[in-house]
Design a protein around this nucleic acid. Sequence first.
DNA 1: AGTGTCGCCTGAATGC
DNA 2: TGCATTCAGGCGACAC
Length: 275
Amino acid sequence: MPELPEVETVKRALVDNILDNQIFSVKAFRKNLRYDFPVNMDKILNNRTISKIERRAKYILIYLKEDDNVIVIHLGMSGKLLIKPFEYNNYDKHDHLVIGLEDKKLIFNDPRRFGLFTIIKSSEIAKHKLFANLGIEPLESNFGGNMLLDLLKNKAKTNIKNAIMDQSLIVGVGNIYACESLFLSKIMPTRIASSLSPQECNILVLNIKQILGDAIKLGGSTLKDYASVNGNSGYFQNNFFVYGRYNLPCNICNNHIKKVKQNGRTTFYCDHCQK
DNA sequence: AGTGTCGCCTGAATGC
DNA sequence: TGCATTCAGGCGACAC
């Protein structure tokens, strides 16, 4: 499930593979994913050159050289961007969008279709509904314990796990890295968010940065739904302490890992290590 | 306004 | 074997 490290990995692979490429065709096999695809997107994109590729939160932004249009991609739960040779035409039933480049194809494959592909003006990004309410990038240097303490100070009605997954507070942290960072910080996921001490906020910030950074170094985590652009797996899933390890022994204390539903999602934790 | 719940969607895993 | 059910979860819509 693409969270910040997986999206960052895809973004870096796109930089390596398609930066400075020209777009020659855009073919959609259906009219929408989460939203309708832009009308006339072939006309908007044909003969344009990819000048810059960025990540903001879990979104990938592809800038064009000739005008101020920006392609916005979100992978949702199961979206993949795949680079294939130009001759490739053995399409999977979940290949929804094919962008023809100079000597390759960029394919948006998404079985669950929670993904998003749209085009907006670069000047409108900041106020666009997808971006206007996004929180701090956790890997930015100005994200620190004091900032987290401030973000949580009025969160007296929600739990800390939900809070760090709230994209309007901190971006890019999903279920996996929320569980893992709370485990490393020895903080019980069910704690009220505003109850964290300044010290706990410092530790949690350090662990969020550490775990996201480590995951990026390993190319993200590959479970059922994620692979990078060449179909390669990430390796960080081998480093999980709690996620997906229900009833297995905790690597620290040997007690069995527990799970609980929080806000509709499964939380994995160790009730001995986390307080 | 802030918070919680539901539904979108498919495929894998599980149950009978 | 095969059909039905459950689960996975990012995020928007909706209810309270």
